[in-house]
């Protein structure tokens, strides 16, 4: 016990920060989700589970959830596959690879609000660079109303989200690839493994912890991708890019329904917890051993 007490000063700052910045707001949100607080009035009433029923039936909440799933799947797929392919090209140590890693990482250090504004201009259907580029290379038929067409707007934003974070994920994969012992690969090659066999039987299974981090981080990140949506479309056109975080924001700050927003946050928290848990189970990170 004495030993534990001596260690307390080391963990206390972290624990206090975690409690104040994470646990307190989380518990507060849970508490307010059972009320009809408007965020301003000093008084409010307890409404039991009413908010939970209302939010689950809410047309906009359902649309947001559907959009969020589309957004997440697109981002997870593009981001994981492309960053893995890039990592396989640049994980070996050479000056060029170090430069390329830095280059791919560059979009990650830009503020996502700036990224949103930059891409809004690129996507502009009349003046934007993307449609102009397609026109120049003779692919005018592929020019789109990227952010104005409700059918593709969410995917246009997902592509930007992936673009901004592919470099970051590639670095995680590079770290994973570099930690795979070279002798295991050598042994497999000596045993006559093909490049495909080597990847699927040796590299990928041993890359599972890195892949789990990439996939779960990307999932969580894409679920809470508020800033890009907010700056690029504001949830429009006609709710086509409304996602859970923008739904929570507009419920709380534009519609003054904090109780409802808190309820949506609780659903959001549960959803992310379940998805992350399932991902870790499916990717079997606990089974990796050398």
């Amino acid at each position: 016990m004495k030993k534990h007490l001596r260690l307390l000063p080391f963990i206390l700052p972290g624990l206090v920060l975690y409690a104040v910045l994470f646990m307190y707001p989380t518990i507060s949100a849970l508490y307010y989700s059972f009320t009809n607080w408007d965020g301003l009035s000093p008084s409010y009433q307890y409404v039991g589970l009413q908010n939970y029923v209302k939010v689950s039936e809410d047309i906009i909440f359902r649309k947001s959830l559907g959009n969020n799933v589309k957004f997440m799947l697109t981002v997870v797929l593009i981001q994981t596959v492309v960053s893995l392919l890039l990592a396989l090209q640049i994980y070996k140590k050479s000056k060029l690879n170090v430069f390329l890693r830095a280059l791919y990482f560059l979009p990650t250090i830009l503020s996502s609000v700036s990224v949103g504004f930059i891409w809004t201009f690129i996507y502009d259907s009349n003046l934007g660079a993307l449609n102009k580029l397609l026109q120049i290379i003779g692919l005018e038929s592929l020019a789109q109303n990227w952010l104005g067409n409700p059918g593709i707007a969410i995917f246009s934003i997902a592509a930007v989200q992936a673009w901004a974070h592919i470099g970051q994920m590639a670095v995680l994969f590079v770290a994973g690839l570099q930690s795979i012992p070279a002798e295991i690969k050598e042994a497999a090659i000596l045993d006559g493994a093909s490049q495909t066999g080597l990847f699927f039987r040796i590299t990928w299974p041993l890359l599972a912890p890195a892949a789990a981090i990439v996939v779960s981080y990307t999932t969580i990140q894409s679920f809470k991708a508020f800033d890009l949506v907010f700056t690029m479309t504001g949830g429009g056109p006609n709710y086509a890019t409304e996602i859970l975080s923008t739904y929570i924001y507009s419920s709380a700050f534009l519609n003054y329904a904090f109780g409802k927003a808190a309820t949506a946050s609780v659903y959001f928290l549960l959803l992310i917890a379940v998805i992350t848990f399932l991902q870790f189970k499916l990717l079997r990170t606990d089974r990796v051993s050398y």
Binding site: G148, N149, P150, G236, P237, N238, Y239, N255
Partner: peptide
């Protein structure tokens, strides 16, 4: 007075401009 009602009203305009019929929007 309700922000979400306001949004539903303006979004129905975006819907018709995206090709949805006036009745459906």
């Amino acid at each position: 007075s309700n922000g979400e009602v306001q949004k539903a009203v303006t979004n129905s305009i975006q819907a018709v401009l995206s090709g949805v019929s006036a009745e459906q929007a």
